[in-house]
């Protein structure tokens, strides 16, 4: 899903950091901030073999779009943003999410990229199940989307 200065998406294929940087390139932009989230080999005292990501694709793309539009409104209409998240089974070291932001100056690029990532973690319909070396698997606890009692 690409519209002018925003690209968001989900995929079961490996993520492409070079594509994110290329999308965010603009002659007037002197700063590009790139974030890559990767599967790490240890969490909460347990060695991790890999992570399975589950997501609601249609809602996820809509939420990504909403987050990106909020970020552009906050940090400038010429900010360019990229946000893609992978789903399916990933091994340790593989990229699960790539976010990039570019702007004329570094402060806006840093802040826009961080806002996009933090909001994604709190609001996007994505879940992860960690697989451990002892053969066990657990769904990771997250942030509730609801506000009812």
């Amino acid at each position: 899903m690409t519209r002018m200065n925003i690209h968001v998406g989900t995929t079961d294929q490996p993520l492409d950091a070079a594509a994110a940087l290329e999308f965010c390139a603009a002659p007037g932009h002197g700063a590009v901030d790139l974030f890559i989230g990767r599967v790490r080999d240890f969490n909460q005292g347990k060695p991790v073999l890999g992570v399975s990501y589950d997501l609601h694709e249609a809602l996820c793309r809509n939420v990504f779009r909403e987050l990106a539009e909020e970020t552009v409104a906050q940090w400038g209409s010429d900010t360019r943003l990229w946000l893609t998240h992978r789903h399916g089974r990933l091994d340790v070291g593989e990229a699960s999410v790539i976010a990039a932001a570019s702007s004329p100056h570094r402060d806006e690029a840093f802040r826009a990229c961080r806002q996009l990532v933090e909001q994604m973690k709190h609001r996007a319909p994505i879940w992860k199940q960690e697989h451990y070396t002892d053969g066990d698997s657990e769904w990771v606890q997250g942030h509730a989307l609801c506000s009812h009692g």
Partner: peptide, 27 residues
């Protein structure tokens, strides 16, 4: 729905599939 999270007092939208979303943890 595919478009948005529903409030607790909202009616069930007609002709749309719903999703039950546990607490999220992307990234």
């Amino acid at each position: 729905t595919d478009r948005r999270v529903l409030g607790e007092d909202e009616g069930i939208p007609a002709d749309e599939e719903l999703a039950l979303l546990p607490p999220v943890c992307g990234g």
